[in-house]
């Protein structure tokens, strides 16, 4: 009996891997729930109710899904081209800051239909720039982008902190460090009345579709895949690796920046340094669970949002710390990696 690498993975296995991974993660996290002294099945039941049990909870879960789709896409497009963008958290924050700065009453004065797209572009550009810096360092000086993008996350949050305690500080916020609020014209229309759910969800899902089309139908999609699978062969085939990586970085950083801008325009209306509960890092889990597939990202983001929103409700009822959601999500990344390993090999007798 020996292991043999599969040439290509059948669709059924590609779908079975994340499902198996999530089940394994839920089983393992169940041990912790039991240690915390709560009935495991009831806890998971309450998590489902917490995420989908009422109109409010459903809209909350979908609101939470929106930034996760975008940061998940940011990781997925980058990882596909072997660009290790671990900086989505920082890119999220600079995108949010750009939207908040230009969307305030001191910013752009445009009618709503022009202002909203302009702010989204501004957020995306800010995010893209923050990723182009580490990419330039990699291409010019050979610096590994994993560490630089990670370090820039801290720099970005400190920069945001400096701005919201400085020039962008809201004087009416009773001393709390937060930015001046965006104007009414800059806030995203609601998708459902009397909820926080905004049209950002449609934008995120639309972008997932668009990226899927780009990746499967265009030359750029092929090139970015080739750059990831085998850089030297891609170069031999006449692909400009620098060109592809720059485009991928603009797309990836842009998506993360857009996530920040949309969170400000759709939910908060201003920036604080706790705007993101780790959307950037969680996006990596989303992308991996999705097998880096853009449409899979939407499903994976919904799963992750379900865990986070559901855990809040469950925690209130049963007293299990809501950090259990973080545990489940991070565990599912590790079990997914094992799942990918198992599906990429077959047993030969």
């Amino acid at each position: 009996m020996r292991l043999e690498r599969r040439a290509n993975i059948p669709l059924s296995l590609a779908i079975a891997a994340p499902i198996g991974a999530v089940i394994a993660a839920l089983l393992l996290a169940g041990i912790l729930i039991a240690i915390a002294g709560a009935p495991v099945l009831e806890a998971y039941q309450r998590m489902l109710i917490g995420a989908f049990g009422s109109r409010l909870s459903i809209t909350e879960t979908l609101t939470r899904t929106t930034p996760l789709i975008l940061t998940g896409l940011a990781a997925a497009v980058a990882f596909r081209a072997r660009l290790w963008n671990i900086g989505a958290e920082g890119q999220f924050y600079v995108g949010a800051l750009a939207a908040a700065a230009l969307g305030s009453e001191h910013g752009l004065h445009l009618p709503s239909y022009a202002l909203i797209p302009a702010l989204m572009v501004a957020g995306a550009v800010a995010g893209a720039i923050l990723l182009l810096v580490p990419l330039a360092l990699r291409l010019r000086f050979g610096v590994d982008e994993v560490v630089t993008t990670l370090l820039l996350n801290f720099v970005a949050v400190l920069f945001v902190s400096m701005m919201i305690e400085g020039v962008l500080k809201d004087p009416l916020a009773f001393g709390w460090p937060q930015s001046v609020p965006i104007v009414g014209d800059a806030s995203l229309p609601k998708l459902i009345a009397r909820s926080r759910l905004h049209i950002g969800l449609l934008i995120a899902v639309g972008l997932a579709l668009l990226i899927w089309l780009i990746q499967s139908r265009t030359l750029f999609g092929l090139e970015s895949r080739a750059a990831g699978l085998n850089p030297s062969a891609a170069r031999f085939a006449g692909v400009s690796l620098t060109g592809v990586l720059v485009k991928v970085a603009c797309l990836s950083g842009g998506l993360a920046g857009l996530a920040g801008a949309i969170e400000v325009m759709g939910v908060k209306g201003y920036v604080t340094t706790d705007l993101s509960p780790g959307f950037g890092y969680t996006g990596i889990v989303v992308a991996m669970l999705a097998g880096l597939h853009p449409l899979g990202v939407v499903v994976a983001a919904l799963f992750v949002a379900t865990m986070f929103v559901g855990a809040d409700g469950m925690s209130r009822a049963l007293g299990v710390p809501s950090f259990i959601a973080d545990v489940i999500v991070s565990l599912s990344l590790l079990t997914m990696l094992v799942g990918l390993f198992l599906t990429s090999y077959r047993i030969r007798r």
Binding site: L32, Y281, I324, L334
Partner: peptide, 15 residues
Amino acid sequence: TGLGITLFASSLTYF
């Protein structure tokens, strides 16, 4: 994997 370990270890810590 390393990032996964970091996420898992931190979330387990907080839990």
